[in-house]
Design a protein around this nucleic acid. Structure first.
Length: 543
DNA sequence: CGAGTTTGACCGGCGC
DNA sequence: GCGCCGGTCAAACTCG
């Protein structure tokens, strides 16, 4: 006991030294950035209404670098943001920005998943190459914690509900069916698929019809791709990665949870085995608020009602709601979402929270109004032509219609739903949001970092009514086109909108696919970035 | 004939 | 320990 105490004391002193050193470095870092800001501070910087808090200022600076918000970074002639310059910035800004480098690397087409299974241990990677039997995997269990974590991560899932008549959902990947089973709860057979793009790819998916609504196709993804994905596939990969990150971050300590709750966010204790009833914990990213119907609500509900899901923490991405098109105009769907009640684990929905979820809490950004409304046509932005499954004519909303939404037929709602399900751009944003949100949480869990750049700051930003309004200001391109870049487009592609003001959209969501490993999860956006990400996306999409 | 699907058997986790 | 159940395996089958 005495030795343990001594060891404890020694560790404590070491920890305090490290903390001191960290604070010292942090201080130096802030000073450096401050100096740099003074030098670089141009008129464009005034576009960002920075919070008075010094710390948050730093975050805003980092945000501008990451998202390209700063017009000094966005070339007015539509030239692509100079990634190398961003990298220089990243290097300048210290170790925390090495994250950015990671995401930028992925931006360069090195779209390799940082799958734990393949990246962690070459031995494991070798094994997975030949679809190791569970016997083989069992032998690996002696590896202790590492394997435990791997198992945990492996079980992270993303459940996508889509209204579709097709037997499976087109997600861009190649799948091979390896089994089918009729589960007890659902008479509809559940099909098991694995990714065949690469024999070693650990990703699997399950496809099953919803028992309540046979027209709803429930696709559950598990694992992360360890190969470059087909052009249209990264969305789900990103989402799966996000799920993994969320699961990873679910291990946050109660103290951190307390901090988060103090900031207005509530997380359920975990996605772990404890909860078999609805805890009502919601990962809330509410960019809408009652006063702002123009932005979507995103809820990461961690309510867990299906006990079997506890071992498989799941994010449910429900794209099945048949929204009132008038609401869709503002991405605000029908308020009631019955399926939410049966949703396992984490839930992502595009509608208002169900009245039965009183415990839900979300980022309150209700005071943040976008510069103007958005129309569904925005969903087509950001998609390369080959991905425009739904042509603009399916979005028959004009400004006048938007203001008189009731003139739209209900049929359009179904189309809209379908289009949203298929629209990679919008999904990408969501995936990015999920990933970054998750990674933000994770960052929060990693220790002191959480105090610096986790929710605390995100919420500060969000709670500051002045800030996001400024951030919502579109950054018009000089050539009057909407510029979009995504991880499936090497170069930003210019789309000419049919009407309305032009805007600039920059999605650095290439990072989303890298969130599986802790390293890459850190490379993703912070929650604040995520929010701005979405806000900017939606705010700029005003046509 | 190779690739993909089907389907019964098998395995492991979990609850009782 | 036993049985249930979800998930996976692998041989048989189908299809192009």
């Amino acid at each position: 006991m005495g030795q343990v105490r001594e060891e404890n004391q020694r560790l404590k002193s070491m920890l305090s030294q490290i903390v001191k050193a960290y604070q010292c470095l942090q201080h130096q870092f802030f000073e450096l950035v401050q100096q740099e800001k003074k030098v670089e501070m141009g008129p464009s910087r005034s576009k960002l209404s920075l919070p008075c808090n010094q710390e948050t200022k730093e975050e805003a600076e980092l945000l501008s670098l990451t998202l390209g918000l700063s017009s000094s970074r966005l070339k007015t002639d539509g030239e692509r943001i100079n990634i190398s310059s961003m990298r220089r910035e990243s290097t300048k800004n210290g170790n925390s920005d090495s994250k950015q480098e990671l995401s930028l690397d992925s931006c360069n087409g090195k779209f390799m998943s940082c799958d734990h299974e393949s990246s962690k241990d070459p031995k494991e990677g070798e094994l997975s190459r030949t679809w190791p039997s569970r016997k083989l995997l069992r032998t690996l269990k002696s590896d202790g914690e590492q394997v435990l974590e791997q198992t945990r991560l492996k079980k992270a899932r993303v459940c996508v509900r889509v209204r579709s008549d097709a037997p499976t959902m087109e997600d861009g990947c190649q799948w091979r069916k390896y089994g089918q089973k009729i589960s007890k709860a659902n008479p509809c057979p559940r099909a098991y698929y694995r990714c065949t793009v690469l024999p070693s790819c650990p990703v699997r998916k399950q496809v099953q019809r919803c028992i309540e609504d046979m027209s709803v196709l429930i696709t559950t993804y598990e694992g992360n791709h360890n190969h470059p994905l087909p052009i249209s596939a990264p969305v789900m990969a990103s989402t799966t990665s996000a799920a993994t990150s969320i699961i990873q971050s679910s291990s946050s300590t109660s103290q951190q949870q307390q901090q988060q709750q103090q900031h207005g966010l509530r997380f359920s204790a975990s996605c772990g085995p404890a909860s078999t009833t609805s805890t009502g914990g919601m990962y809330g990213l509410d960019y809408t608020g009652d006063r702002n119907p123009k932005l979507p609500r995103i809820y990461f509900s961690s309510s867990s009602q299906i006990s079997t899901c506890n071992s498989h923490p799941t994010i449910t991405l429900d794209l099945t709601s048949s929204p009132d098109f008038s609401d869709l105009d503002g991405y605000r769907y029908s308020p009631c979402f019955p399926s939410l009640l049966t949703a396992p684990s984490t839930y992502l929905s595009f509608c208002s929270p169900p009245p039965s979820s009183p415990s839900s809490s979300h980022l309150d950004t209700t005071t943040h109004k976008p510069s103007s409304g958005i129309g569904p046509r925005v969903l087509n932005h950001g998609m390369p032509p080959q991905h425009q499954f739904y042509q603009p004519h399916l979005w028959p909303v004009t400004k006048s219609q938007a203001s008189h939404p009731q003139s739209l037929p209900d049929k359009s709602g179904a189309e809209a739903t379908k289009a949203i399900s298929l629209n990679l751009s919008f999904q990408s944003v969501l995936a990015a949001a999920m990933t970054s949100f998750a990674s933000g949480r994770e960052t929060d869990c990693l220790g002191d970092k959480g105090k610096e750049g986790g929710f605390g700051r995100d919420l500060k930003l969000g709670d500051d009514p002045a800030t996001p309004i400024k951030l919502l200001q579109p950054s018009p391109q000089a050539d009057g086109t909407a510029r979009v870049s995504s991880n499936y487009m090497d170069k930003p592609t210019a789309f000419s909108s049919r009407e309305g003001p032009k805007s600039s959209i920059w999605f650095p969501h290439s990072s989303v696919a890298l969130s599986t490993s802790k390293k890459s999860a850190r490379a993703s956006m912070s929650p604040a970035e995520t929010k701005d990400h979405l806000i900017k996306f939606l705010g700029n999409s005003d046509m």
